[in-house]
Structure formats: C-alpha cells, structure tokens
C-alpha cells in the first residue's frame, strides 16, 4: 500500500520558450493543496495548462517560480502517471509492460510476474498477459497503463485525460475501475479531464483552471455518496453548476486570489 501524500502547490508558474523568441506562460501563480488520499479532478479548456500542471507535479517540467512540496512518510513520493493514450511500449507484451516499474525497482522475475499477473486479473485482463499492446482495444490498453503505474504502489497517481479517447460505454466501465483501484491503493489522485460529467462522477473535489495563463478560478468539493447515479437530480445539478462556471470562465475573477483554492462551494453569483 502506498502512503497517500499531501501535495502543496504554491505560486506555481511554468513557462515555455517558443522558437522565434517568444515566451508562453502556461501556469501563472497557481495554488492548490491536495489532501492525502483525496481524488481531485482538474477541469478546464484545452490549452489552459492542465497537462502542464500534471507534468510539473510529476517532475517532467521545471517550474519557473513557485514550489511543489509533498508531505508523505518517506520524502519524495512514488508517482504513478497515466497518459492519454499510446504510451505502452509496443515491443513489449502486456505483462512486460505491466511489470516494467517493478523491474526497474529490481524486483525478482518471479515476484514481479506474480504481482503483475494479480493486478492484470484485478482489471479483468487475465488471459491477455502475452498479448501485444496493439492487439488490445483502447480501453484494454488503458487498463494495462493503469496496472503499470499502480504496480509500484504509488503514493500519488496522476492521470492525464486517460479516458478521453474512449467510447462512452468503455469510459463508464473504466471510471468505476479507477474508483475501485483508488480505494484499493489509497493514493492521492490528481485527474485531468475536460469532461464535466467525468469530474462530477469521480471526484471528491473539482478544480477549474481558467484560460491562459492558467490558475485555479474555481474550486468545489463534492460530497455525494459513491457510486453516484449519473441520472439523479443532484448529479445533474452539480454538472449544471460546473457547466455554468466553465462557460463563464472569461468573467470569473482573475489573478491574485490564491484563496479560491481553499474555499468550498460555488461563489454566490453562480448559485
């Protein structure tokens, strides 16, 4: 079991140099504080810096200012990362993909085989251990990606639109699977999506990032019991509220208010 991590992001800015000399600010003074073991969805329009946020937390991008600190038992957290798609190694079989992190950690062949086999069974892929990734459907490939990132028992699980290339039915299945896996491994989850419905179905907390330069413009906690009923009134009210926010992004208060991230619920003008 991973030890869930508290993640504190303070004044985080990330920029990129673009060939030709210009500079783009993807994130600008973002603040976010994730409770240990919580499930947070990051919502926002394309290009708002959602992915940059995730990649910076993972250490794949370097912040130009601000800090990200992890408060877990053992210093630097183990991080699991699931990409949108096509991130499996095509020259490795399903089980070789699944056990890659365990291999990197120096686990013996028989131990890692056993663990990877167990996890693959858990996500319903028993019998596919020796298949090649291209022989699997998109949904099955993402199941393998989930197993690969969970095998090493991460304290923090980062998912970058992992379901957005899948059809609706597969998405529903995988949303439930992700919730099961989250309960099973107990990691803190940061889940980037552009689907409001997905966010409302999955998350303890939804954070909306505004247009460039990205920062948190809205932050809401969802306390409904799981499994949530997508057809219920409460669910659809929640979606409608978030939808109002997303559609009025331009009108929301701009910078300077790091405080929004700790407030719960909708600002009065959107209730």
């Amino acid at each position: 079991m991973g030890e869930a991590c508290r993640v504190v992001i303070e004044g985080l800015s990330v920029g990129f140099d673009i060939p030709g000399g210009s500079h783009v600010t993807a994130l600008d003074g973002m603040c976010l504080d994730l409770d240990p073991g919580s499930f947070t969805c990051v919502l926002g329009p394309t290009g708002c810096g959602k992915t940059t946020l995730l990649r910076t937390v993972a250490g794949l991008e370097t912040p130009s200012s601000g800090s990200i600190s992890f408060k877990c038992g053992s210093g630097r957290p183990r991080i699991g990362f699931v990409f949108q798609q096509h991130a499996l190694f095509p020259w490795m079989t399903v089980i070789e993909n699944a056990e890659f992190g365990l291999r990197a950690a120096g686990m013996s062949r028989s131990d890692r085989r056993a663990r990877a086999t167990d996890l693959l069974r858990l996500v319903g892929l028993d019998g596919f251990e020796n298949a090649w990734p291209h022989q699997l459907s998109g949904g099955m490939q993402q199941r393998v990606s989930l197993v690969r990132s969970l095998a090493t028992d991460p304290d923090l699980l980062l998912l970058d639109e992992p379901l957005s290339s899948l059809d609706l039915h597969t998405r529903f299945e995988l949303e439930d699977l992700i919730l099961d896996l989250w309960r099973f491994c107990g990691a803190t989850v940061l889940f980037v999506t552009h689907s409001i419905e997905e966010a409302v179905y999955l998350a303890d907390r939804v954070v909306v990032i505004g247009r460039r330069p990205g920062r948190v413009v809205f932050d809401v906690r969802l306390e409904d019991e799981r499994p949530r009923n997508r057809l219920s009134r409460a669910f659809n009210d929640g979606m409608l509220e978030l939808r109002t926010v997303v559609e009025n992004l331009a009108m929301l208060p701009g910078p300077d208010d790091c405080i929004t991230t700790t407030s719960a619920g909708m600002p009065p003008e959107y209730r």
Binding site: M92, F100, A104
Partner: peptide, 25 residues
C-alpha cells in the same frame, strides 16, 4: 519522448532505458 518519460517515471535508470527502450526502437 513519451516512452522515455514513462520509463523515467517508473524509475528506470540509463542502462535499463538503453536495453529496453533505445535498443528495441
């Protein structure tokens, strides 16, 4: 690049990246 990033996040060192990513690619 995405494969290199995945491998790095999963804790693979240089030798493992060479053997299991660079060579097969």
């Amino acid at each position: 690049r995405i494969h290199l990033e995945v491998a790095e996040l999963l804790g693979a060192g240089r030798a493992m990246i060479f053997r299991h990513l660079t060579l097969p690619s």
